[in-house]
Amino acid sequence: MSHLYKIGQLLELRSAPRLSNRPAGTCEVVACLPHDKGPVLYRVQSINERNERVVEETDLVPSTAAKSAEEAVENERSSISIAVSRRR
């Protein structure tokens, strides 16, 4: 099974089941985690807090939130500079 969402995509994180402090809200996919069996997992970072969380794909839904144009350009620049510096 492949990942439905991509790195950098904004999604809505559903509220956690009881006995958890995970807040619902907009988050960004930081990494798609490898898996052989079991649920598809992602590392996400909430827009409203600094810590990252590992969540199942079923806990995520597409978001209507969009990154600002400035953020998108900055992310593209940083990706290019990383690629260039690794080639050297």
Rank of each mutant, 00 (worst) to 15 (best):
L13Y: 07
L13G: 02
R14L: 15
R14E: 07
R14D: 13
A16C: 12
P17E: 12
R18F: 07
R18S: 11
R18D: 07
R18Y: 04
L19F: 15
S20K: 14
R22Q: 10
R22Y: 07
P23I: 11
P23A: 08
P23T: 06
G25W: 06
T26R: 04
C27K: 00
E28N: 02
V29D: 10
V30E: 12
V30R: 14
C32W: 06
L33N: 04
L33D: 03
L33F: 02
L33W: 02
P34M: 03
P34T: 06
P34Q: 05
H35K: 13
G38F: 02
P39Q: 08
V40A: 07
V40I: 15
L41K: 12
Y42H: 06
Y42Q: 05
V44M: 05
V44W: 03
Q45A: 03
S46I: 00
S46K: 05
S46L: 14
I47N: 01
N48L: 15
N48K: 12
R50M: 11
N51G: 07
R53S: 09
V54K: 06
V54F: 01
V55K: 02
V55F: 03
V55M: 03
E57W: 10
E57Q: 15
V61G: 02
V61D: 06
V61Y: 02
P62C: 03
T64K: 14
A65G: 00
A66T: 15
A66N: 09
K67F: 08
S68I: 06
S68Q: 08
S68L: 05
A69H: 05
E70Y: 10
E71V: 10
E71K: 07
E71S: 15
E71M: 06
V73A: 02
V73T: 07
E74W: 01
E74G: 00
E74S: 06
E74T: 10
E76L: 11
E76T: 13
E76W: 04
R77Q: 08
S81R: 15
V84I: 15
